[in-house]
Simulated scan of single mutants.
Amino acid sequence: MTRAIALAAVTASLSACALPRSGPTKKEIFAGSEMKQGDAFVVSVNDRVNAVTAINQELGFSAAFQNAGVIGSDTIAPGDVLSLTIWENVDDGLLAGAGANATVLSEVQVDGAGFIFVPYAGRIKAAGNSPEAIRRLITEKLDAQTPDPQVMVTRAAGDGATVTITGKISGQGVYPIQRPTRRLTAMLAHAGGVAVEPDVAQVKVIRGSKTGIVWFQDLYDNPKYDIPLRDGDRILVEADPRSFTALGATGAQSVIPFETRNLSALEAIAQVGGLRTSSADPTGVFVFRNEPETIAKQVLGRDDIMGAQRLIYVLDLTQPNGLFLARDFLIRDGDTLYVTEAPFTQWQKTLSAVTGTANSANSLAAIGQ
């Protein structure tokens, strides 16, 4: 009688509560589909779905960055200090004292707006110009007031045009734009190169109110992205910020960063250690994603849906072409990769719970005798 009571108690407890598991079963996921009054569309992955959803994250610089001309290595910048020497072809000139025909202005600083002041020539735009261009501007201004003036301009102090490089770079710092480092790739090499895997490295250039981002590898694959640098550019090198979440019967359950630029479902499974051979159901590999309206319409073949949609993509690795489909299905930022447990695993848990609890009931019965 005692054993019967204990077994009855086991049966009641198992029916009253669910067995431990890592997430929903395949049946429960399908039960939440839109066709069964749920709020998500469950879609089996095939070649057409792969073609529609295969969106690569393309980065690149706008035309404003690409069309900027190369600046000279001796371009003057605000804060630079110039030295001016002006010769006049008269004994009593505008600037020179009596008995002298040359005037030296040794410390002329370029103000924050980029201008300098030269007596009788007025305000001269210096920033963005080379010393030679400044020399011509001053000469033109003085030529109307003194015969045949001769002007020499040199940079006395300051680095001229500079850029700031930070992030995943071997040598962070402020670097002058010199003749060999006028373009982005040369400047990155001058700073020691990127300190992250090149395949997942991104380079951001901030220029005033404009920002451009490019894959590091594209700087070499597409020379148009090797843009000329400008004074004040801020360059940030960072690793690919994208990630996906792995849950269920996988080798790891956590947020996983992308290790390749284009990550397939098969690579994502391998990246988390593969499927658990003791519990995973290879027919129940799911990818949860919020799809934008345009892609959702193409995937579902419908025009009556509005806004982003919750889509659950199903991969069956046991099908003849299942591994090929998983290889061609691209994972996107924010995806959730979920692998269900095999039905056998649930049965095994039930059996273990019954036999374990029955053994406990037998022990209790033995104590009561």
Rank of each mutant, 00 (worst) to 15 (best):
P131Y: 04
E132S: 12
E132L: 12
A133M: 14
A133V: 15
A133I: 11
I134Q: 09
I134L: 11
I134H: 13
R135A: 13
R135C: 08
R135G: 09
R135Y: 11
R135E: 14
R136C: 00
R136D: 14
R136Y: 05
R136P: 00
L137Q: 13
L137G: 01
L137Y: 01
L137W: 01
I138E: 04
I138Q: 04
T139K: 08
T139Q: 15
T139H: 11
E140C: 05
K141S: 14
K141A: 14
K141Y: 05
L142A: 01
L142S: 06
L142G: 06
L142E: 03
D143Y: 05
D143F: 10
A144K: 11
A144R: 14
A144Q: 10
A144P: 02
Q145K: 15
Q145A: 12
Q145I: 03
Q145M: 10
Q145W: 04
Q145L: 14
T146N: 06
T146Q: 04
T146W: 03
T146V: 15
T146K: 00
T146P: 02
P147N: 05
P147F: 04
P147S: 11
P147I: 13
D148F: 12
D148T: 09
D148M: 07
P149K: 02
P149T: 07
P149W: 03
Q150T: 08
Q150A: 09
Q150K: 14
Q150F: 09
Q150R: 14
V151N: 10
V151F: 06
V151G: 09
M152Y: 09
M152Q: 07
M152A: 14
V153P: 01
V153K: 09
T154R: 10
T154C: 03
R155W: 00
R155Q: 13
R155F: 00
R155E: 03
A156M: 09
A156D: 05
A156K: 12
A157M: 00
A157G: 03
A157T: 00
D159F: 00
D159I: 00
G160S: 06
G160M: 10
G160R: 04
A161Q: 09
T162M: 12
V163M: 09
T164H: 05
T164F: 13
I165N: 09
I165V: 15
T166N: 05
T166C: 04
G167Y: 02
K168R: 08
K168H: 00
K168V: 01
I169D: 04
I169Q: 06
I169W: 03
I169E: 03
G171V: 05
G171S: 13
G171W: 10
G171E: 15
G171K: 15
G171M: 10
Q172S: 14
G173L: 11
G173Y: 08
G173F: 12
V174T: 14
V174G: 04
V174N: 01
V174Q: 06
Y175R: 12
Y175G: 08
Y175D: 05
Y175W: 15
P176Q: 06
P176A: 07
P176L: 04
I177N: 02
I177F: 01
Q178G: 06
Q178N: 06
Q178D: 09
Q178A: 12
R179H: 11
R179L: 13
R179V: 15
R179A: 15
R179E: 11
